[in-house]
Simulated scan of single mutants.
Amino acid sequence: MTAGNYGTPEPENDDPFAYLYHSEGDASGSEPGQTVAQPGVPRTSYNQVKRVGERQYGNAGATAGGGYGYPPQAPTQQVPQQGQPTQYAPQQPPQPPQQAPGGRRAARGGSGGGPNNKMLLIGAVAVVAVVAIIISAVMIKGSGAKSQAGGSKPSATSGANSAQPAQSASSSSSDSTAGALPGTTDAATLTLAGGAQKSTQWSGAKASGGEYVDHMTSVGASVTWTVTAPKAASYDLWVRYANAQKDAASATTVVNGKALGWKMDLKNYGKEGDWTGWYRTFVSVNLNKGSNTVAVTCASGDSCHFNLDQLALVEAGGAKPNW
């Protein structure tokens, strides 16, 4: 050691913590990217004291952080070397935070949902209204049905009302009796006209006292029966007669003053000249509901050699009289 350097420590030994002030892997104390000072050349960069734990990445002039326990620091501006133009890094404007479509209000079901939420709300209100109308209609209908059921029940305290059903039943029974078919009747008890007469000459008649109607051979001779039909319909008119002639007899049926287009066939099924044999035949007639007139008449062109014992009116296709 010379006198000129006495008392002056060596550069690498002047500070035991010098390694903390240099970049990692740089023993000379120069920062990455900086030029080491040379004799006779002015310095363009300077070493700066760094905090413990501070690291540099990338550009030499920018710090990655403020070290342990220190806030981050703004990057220091690098001093340009002589003869070089000054360069500045373009700064980007701050970007606003991005939100999801519809924003927070849309995520919470607010007005950010647009017209779809309004349409859904209107549809829900319409459905509720329709359901309310249907329920009201059902309740009203059920109430009306209960009222009708209650009104049909007779009152136990009303004596006049309780007597009315019995009276109605009596009237119905009377009407039914009045509208029933008359059944079998004796010809001698009916209205006779045109020369028709009563007779008891021949036996075998079923009429009361054996009395029957004779002398039907004259044109215009008739037996008229007034009957009450329970309904407008077709009926069978049966007659019990006697014919002792060789040929079949015939007659015209008149209903309510109108002659039918078909004749009543009165054929002889026994011996010729035997007036004690009695037979039966029928003809279909259409009657109105209520009172009707049915007549057995000897019209022009008829062969009226027959006697009449009884007449019967039954429903079409009904049971035959017991003759």
Rank of each mutant, 00 (worst) to 15 (best):
Arg240Ala: 06
Lys267Cys: 05
Asp247Asn: 14
Lys246Phe: 06
Tyr241Cys: 02
Leu260Gln: 02
Lys246Gly: 10
Leu266Gly: 01
Thr253Phe: 04
Lys258Met: 04
Lys246Asp: 14
Gln245Phe: 04
Lys263Gln: 03
Asp265Ala: 11
Ala249Glu: 03
Asn243Ile: 06
Asp247Val: 10
Leu266Tyr: 00
Lys263Ser: 09
Thr252Lys: 02
Trp262Arg: 13
Lys263Asn: 04
Leu260Tyr: 01
Asp265Thr: 13
Asn243Glu: 10
Asn268Met: 07
Asn256Glu: 10
Arg240Gly: 05
Ser250Gln: 10
Asn256Pro: 12
Lys258Ser: 12
Lys267Gly: 12
Asp265Pro: 12
Ser250Ala: 09
Ala251Pro: 08
Asn256His: 12
Lys246Asn: 14
Gln245Thr: 15
Thr253Cys: 06
Ala251Phe: 03
Asn256Asp: 15
Ala242His: 08
Ala259His: 08
Lys263Phe: 03
Arg240Leu: 06
Asn268Gln: 08
Arg240Trp: 09
Trp262Tyr: 15
Ala242Asp: 05
Lys246Met: 07
Ala259Glu: 06
Asp265Ser: 15
Leu266Asp: 00
Ala259Val: 06
Ala248His: 10
Ala248Asp: 15
Asp265Met: 08
Met264Cys: 00
Ala249Tyr: 02
Gly261Leu: 04
Val255Trp: 04
Gln245Tyr: 07
Gly261Trp: 04
Ala249Asp: 04
Asn243Arg: 14
Val255Arg: 03
Trp262Pro: 04
Asn268Thr: 11
Ala244Cys: 09
Gln245Pro: 00
Thr252Gly: 02
Asn243Gly: 06
Lys267Ile: 09
Ala259Lys: 09
Leu260Arg: 02
Asn268Gly: 10
Gln245Glu: 14
Lys258Asn: 11
Ser250Met: 09
Lys258Asp: 05
Tyr241Thr: 00
Asn256Lys: 11
Leu266Arg: 02
Val255Gln: 05
Ala242Tyr: 09
Ala242Val: 06
Trp262Gln: 14
Asn243Met: 08
Lys258Pro: 03
Asn268Ser: 09
Gly261His: 06
Asp247Gln: 15
Val254Arg: 05
Lys246Cys: 02
Trp262Met: 08
Val255Ile: 11
Arg240Val: 08
Leu260Ser: 02
Asp247Ile: 04
Lys267Ala: 15
Asn256Phe: 14
Ala259Ile: 03
Val254Gln: 05
Asn243Pro: 04
Asn256Ile: 15
Tyr241Asp: 00
Asn243Thr: 11
Tyr241Glu: 00
Lys263Leu: 03
Asn268His: 14
Met264Trp: 00
Ser250Tyr: 06
Ala242Arg: 07
Gly261Arg: 04
Thr253Met: 09
Val255Cys: 03
Ala244Asp: 12
Leu266Thr: 02
Ala259Pro: 07
Met264Phe: 01
Gly261Asn: 13
Asn243Tyr: 10
Tyr241Leu: 01
Asp247Ala: 15
Thr253Tyr: 03
Asp247Cys: 04
Gln245Lys: 14
Val255Asn: 03
Ala249Ser: 14
Thr252Arg: 01
Asn256Ser: 12
Thr252His: 01
Lys258Arg: 08
Asp265Leu: 10
Asn268Leu: 10
Gly261Ile: 02
Ala251Val: 08
Gly257Leu: 12
Gly257Pro: 14
Tyr241Ala: 01
Thr253Lys: 05
Asn268Phe: 09
Asn256Tyr: 11
Tyr241His: 00
Lys263Ala: 04
